[in-house]
C-alpha cells in the first residue's frame, strides 16, 4: 500500500507549475504600464495593514471587505464634482447627465459614468462602458442588482477628485477618482463620510474599457463603526435574516437577491431608528 510519504512525494511531483517554465518574464517597465491600464473590474485590495501584520483580528475582517466594496461597481453613489466637495453629503441633482460627446476627455467620461451610477441609471452607465468592461462587471443585470443593493442600503459615493494620468501612445488613459462614501445609512446616524478610497478607470476612444474600485473600510473606521455594529444588530435582533442577507457566517460579505435587497433596505432603516432611538431622549 502506498505510504503517506509516497503520496506526499507524488503531490510534490504533481506541482502544476513544475514544468511551466516557458513563459518569459515581461519587462518590468512594460508590465508596470500594463498594470496601470489593465482591466481589473473588482479589486479587493485591502489597504488596511494586513500584509505587514503578522496576525489579524478574526472578525469580519477585513471587512466587509468585499462587502461594501460594493463589489463590482460601487453602489449608489452620489457624485460630487469638485465644486460640490464643500457639501459632500448633498446628493447630486437627478440624472440629466448626457452622453459625453465623442471628443469628451477621459476625465469627463469617467465622471459621466460615476454620475450615471450615482443616479442609478444603469442604461446611461452602461452606455459609457465598452462591451468588455460591461461583461467583466457581470453584465447589465448584475450592475442593476448591485445598484439596487446600494440604493437599498443608502450607499453614497462622494467623489472628491478625478485626475487623468498621461495617455499612452495607444490612446489609453487611466483616470483615478478619489472618493469618500457613506454606507449602511451611516450619514443618517451621524457617521461618515469615510475617506481614502479610489476608483480607477481606463479610458479609450471615449469609453471605459476597465475599472476597478479600491474601497477603504479599515483605517477610516467604517468597518468597526458601521458594518460590524449593524451586522451584530441584525444577528441579535433578526437572526433568521443573516443567512438571507449575508454570504458567510462571519457576515463580511453580503448577498444580493431580490429577497436580500428587500431585507437590507428594511433592516438598515430599522437600524437607523434603533440608533437614533437610543439618543432620542436627549435630542428634541
Amino acid at each position: 500500500m502506498i505510504t503517506d510519504d509516497d503520496v506526499m512525494r507524488l503531490f510534490e511531483r504533481a506541482d502544476p507549475a513544475r514544468y511551466d517554465r516557458a513563459t518569459s518574464v515581461p519587462d518590468a517597465t512594460g508590465y508596470l504600464d500594463a498594470l496601470r491600464t489593465r482591466s481589473i473590474d473588482m479589486t479587493i485590495t485591502q489597504t488596511t495593514p494586513l500584509p505587514t501584520e503578522p496576525k489579524r483580528p478574526p472578525r469580519w475582517p477585513i471587512l466587509l471587505a468585499a462587502a461594501a466594496v460594493v463589489s463590482i461597481v460601487v453602489g449608489a453613489l452620489v457624485f460630487a464634482t469638485r465644486d460640490d466637495v464643500a457639501d459632500p453629503v448633498t446628493p447630486a441633482a437627478p440624472s440629466v447627465a448626457p452622453l459625453p460627446p465623442v471628443t469628451a476627455s477621459p476625465t469627463e467620461v469617467a465622471t459621466a459614468y460615476l454620475d450615471a451610477i450615482g443616479n442609478h441609471d444603469v442604461d446611461l452607465a452602461t452606455s459609457h462602458l465598452s462591451d468588455g468592461a460591461l461583461t467583466r462587471l457581470g453584465g447589465p443585470d448584475e450592475l442593476r442588482r448591485q445598484l439596487e443593493w446600494a440604493r437599498a442600503t443608502g450607499f453614497e459615493m462622494l467623489v472628491t477628485s478625478c485626475e487623468p494620468a498621461t495617455s499612452s501612445p495607444t490612446g489609453v488613459t487611466p483616470v483615478t477618482c478619489a472618493y469618500d462614501f457613506n454606507g449602511i445609512r451611516s450619514n443618517e446616524i451621524g457617521l461618515g463620510p469615510f475617506g481614502g478610497s479610489t476608483y480607477r478607470f481606463t479610458i479609450q476612444d471615449g469609453k471605459v474599457i476597465s475599472l476597478s474600485d479600491s474601497i477603504e473600510t479599515g483605517s477610516n473606521g467604517f468597518s468597526t463603526q458601521v458594518w460590524e455594529p449593524f451586522a451584530e444588530w441584525v444577528a441579535l435582533t433578526h437572526p433568521d435574516d443573516v443567512a438571507i442577507m449575508y454570504n458567510d457566517s462571519s457576515r463580511s460579505d453580503y448577498l444580493v437577491t431580490d429577497e436580500s435587497i428587500r431585507l437590507w433596505e428594511q433592516r438598515t432603516h430599522e437600524y437607523v431608528e434603533h440608533v437614533l432611538g437610543g439618543t432620542a431622549t436627549t435630542t428634541p
Partner: peptide
C-alpha cells in the same frame, strides 16, 4: 497582476 498591483500601490509597506 492583482498581486503586483497591490505591491505597487503599497510600495511603502
Amino acid at each position: 497582476a492583482e498581486t503586483f498591483l497591490t505591491a505597487w500601490r503599497r510600495l511603502d509597506d
